[in-house]
Amino acid sequence: MTKDEQTRLAPHPVLPDYYGKAEDRRTRVDEMFDSSAEHYDWITDVMSFGSGRMYRRQALLRAGIKAGDKVLDVGAGTGVVSWLAQQIVGEEGLVVALDPSKGMLSQAVKLGVEHTSMGLGEALPFPDDTFDYLTMGFALRHVADLGAAFAEYQRVLKPGGKILLLEITRPEGKIATAFLKFYLKIIIPNLAKIFRRSADSKVLMRYYWDTIEQCVPPATIVEALKATGLEQSKRAVVLSIFSEYTGIKPARV
């Protein structure tokens, strides 16, 4: 193991069912998302019983996003969070959807997202002190290095700007975890294959659960936020499985 591998804080270990080594992860993940992009919103709507967009909108409002704000949505995928934020900030504001998958961003454009950019969270193509908010909806498990990503997130925020990271987290109880695993790893992938006729989507949704199951503990994520200098870093829990991580960039004195 190299020194870089020892210091990197990956959100989960290598998952050999999908790729053999850490450096292969990015290419494989991009392939899965590109090939499943046209099916992704249908799958997630079914998975959340149609409530996913309402929850995302409420989370954005809880975080304090308002008209006129400038928002960067990292790991935007098909652009649902970006599109909702776009409605909140209005014409006076700005929302940019960033994602490494061309296929996912093409779906975001179809949804109505006005500004998109291809890129990685660990190397954001924006100047320092640009955005009021940085959001990430259920994509934290797909970055390579939490520390590097959080440092970049803080860099592009204006002083006093806020991070909002939405994630699904394993429930604390064994029974609840077993139920969620059966639902997300067995039922949802098979529904994707049957109704969307997409074997690739089935693989992606199985990967989706495996990254949840193997993800580092919430306390590790909060500590990583604090380690980059973000103030008031914390986690709020909604409905036992939804984690809302927040942190604020220090204001300059």
Rank of each mutant, 00 (worst) to 15 (best):
M1W: 09
K3E: 15
K3L: 13
E5D: 12
Q6R: 15
Q6Y: 06
Q6C: 09
T7L: 13
R8E: 13
L9Y: 05
G20Y: 07
G20E: 15
K21E: 12
E23K: 13
E23P: 01
D24H: 12
R28P: 00
R28A: 14
V29W: 04
V29M: 03
D30Q: 15
D34A: 02
S36T: 15
A37K: 09
A37L: 04
E38D: 14
D41F: 05
I43R: 03
D45C: 06
D45M: 04
M47G: 09
S48A: 12
F49D: 02
G52H: 11
M54N: 12
R56W: 00
R56G: 02
R57A: 08
R57M: 10
Q58G: 11
R62W: 13
R62L: 13
G64V: 01
G64R: 02
G64P: 02
G64I: 00
I65D: 07
I65R: 01
K66C: 08
K70C: 09
V71F: 03
G79S: 03
G79D: 00
V80S: 13
V80K: 09
S82L: 07
L84M: 10
L84S: 07
Q87K: 14
E91H: 09
G93C: 02
V95W: 01
D99M: 08
K102D: 10
G103Y: 07
L105C: 08
Q107G: 07
L111K: 14
V113H: 03
E114Q: 15
E114K: 15
G119P: 06
G119Y: 06
L120D: 10
E122Q: 14
E122I: 08
E122T: 02
E122R: 05
A123I: 01
P125N: 07
F126V: 08
F126N: 07
T130A: 12
M136D: 04
A144H: 11
D145S: 03
F150D: 08
A151P: 04
E152C: 07
Q154W: 00
Q154V: 01
K158Y: 02
L164I: 07
E167I: 10
T169Y: 12
R170E: 15
G173F: 06
G173H: 08
I175V: 15
I175C: 04
I175D: 12
I175Q: 11
T177I: 01
A178I: 01
F179E: 11
F179S: 09
L180T: 10
Y183C: 01
I187V: 15
I188S: 03
P189R: 10
I194W: 11
I194T: 12
F195N: 05
F195D: 04
R196L: 13
S198Q: 09
S198A: 08
S198R: 13
S201Y: 06
V203F: 00
V203L: 14
R206A: 11
W209F: 11
C215G: 09
P217C: 06
P218E: 10
A219Q: 13
I221L: 10
V222Q: 11
E223Y: 05
A224C: 13
A224T: 14
A224P: 06
T228H: 02
G229R: 08
G229N: 08
V237I: 15
V237K: 11
V238T: 09
V238L: 12
S243T: 04
T246R: 14
G247F: 01
I248A: 05
I248C: 06
P250E: 06
R252V: 11
